[in-house]
Amino acid sequence: MSLRLELDGRIATLVIDRPDKRNAMSFAMWREIPELVERVRADDAVRVLVVRGGEHFCAGADISEFAELRRGVEATARYSAVVHAGEQALATLEKPTIASVDGFCVGGGCEVALACDIRIASARARFGITPAKLGIVYSLTSTKRLVDVVGPSWAKQVLLTGELVDAAVALRIGLVNEVVEDLGARTAELAAVIASRAPVSVLGMKQIVERVVAGEREESAEVAELYDAAVRSAEYAEGVAAFLEKRTPVF
């Protein structure tokens, strides 16, 4: 088994588990991601999805498959479509996602991490996107996501050199949110905090951030509905009551 979904109350964890290949993503693994993400989407008990590996987060796509599965323009397009679908499944999940990164996070692994909302890394994490070493042009969608996170200048350096950057550089350029000593503990803590917050707020604010990133600058009817839904919710009533009663809200 190379991918598995672990459920623990409000938190689901998508585990990349292929240690003999440094968690390199096979074609079958890319194809499996949308189904696993859909299970998270459909489970009302789950509020946060964590994505992690083991010793390494993910060393990229399994290049040993390329000679067979990416032979020619049509085969390459089919392969790329499956990768894109996996990445988009994570990127468009309404629930918050956290990438917990240890070791190598390269190529397709970095693509997976960038599709998550928040990235937490250990000091030994290493990041890179390496199409320039393979004669591949990175997709526009994935490139935009990188540019949105680190800016155009650093995106160019990462893509044009194909070099790996360490955790300290990744933190400085905004590729990761935090570099921590105890990756597992901090990931669990952050996931638990987000899972404890009002879902109507968490889901609404994630949508608004995505709209801003997509270029929206004006209030819309859809955004106004997010505001209204929050005010009408039982979570709003509970949040206000808990504040007035000086207790922790139960959402």
Rank of each mutant, 00 (worst) to 15 (best):
L244H: 05
C116H: 13
R186V: 14
K144L: 14
G215N: 01
V106T: 15
G184C: 06
L69Y: 03
S100G: 03
D20V: 11
G135D: 12
M1L: 09
L160G: 01
D44R: 02
S233I: 10
R18H: 03
M1T: 06
P131D: 12
V165D: 03
A115S: 15
E189L: 07
L190F: 07
R47N: 08
M29G: 08
V48S: 01
A91S: 11
V106L: 10
R22H: 11
A167D: 11
I129C: 05
A241M: 05
Y79G: 03
E245V: 14
L171H: 01
F127H: 07
V250L: 13
L90C: 00
A229F: 05
R39V: 00
E65M: 02
L183R: 00
E55T: 13
D44K: 00
S201A: 14
G53D: 07
A167P: 11
G204C: 13
P152T: 10
R126F: 09
R39Q: 00
E35F: 14
I118F: 12
A191R: 00
R70Y: 04
V112T: 06
M29V: 13
E189Y: 03
V202W: 15
V165H: 01
S2M: 08
V106C: 08
R47D: 10
G86W: 06
R145H: 04
A168E: 14
V83N: 06
I129Y: 07
L159I: 04
G215P: 08
R4W: 07
A89K: 00
T76Y: 03
F127T: 04
G215L: 04
T248G: 07
C105A: 08
G109N: 10
A45N: 08
I11L: 02
G108P: 08
K133T: 13
V213G: 05
S201H: 13
R172F: 10
V158G: 04
L203Q: 15
Y227L: 15
R78Q: 13
A224Q: 04
F251S: 07
S122C: 05
L183W: 09
E6Y: 00
C105P: 08
K246M: 13
G239E: 10
E219N: 13
R186C: 08
A45Q: 11
A91R: 03
G174S: 05
C116K: 07
F243E: 13
L14Q: 07
A42K: 10
V48K: 02
L146P: 07
K156R: 05
F104K: 05
A12W: 08
T187Q: 03
R18M: 02
F243N: 01
V150I: 11
A12K: 04
E222H: 09
A28P: 06
A42M: 04
A192F: 01
D43N: 10
A167E: 09
V15E: 10
V231N: 06
A214W: 05
A185T: 15
D8K: 00
V101G: 01
V193L: 13
L164R: 04
I129L: 03
Q157H: 13
R18Q: 06
F251G: 09
T248D: 14
F27N: 04
R4V: 01
P19M: 02
P249G: 01
I98C: 03
V180K: 01
S26A: 14
A123Y: 09
E216A: 14
S196E: 15
S196L: 01
F66A: 11
R186T: 14
D62C: 02
E216I: 10
L36H: 02
V176K: 01
R10S: 12
D228Y: 11
E225C: 06
E178W: 14
A75M: 00
G135M: 05
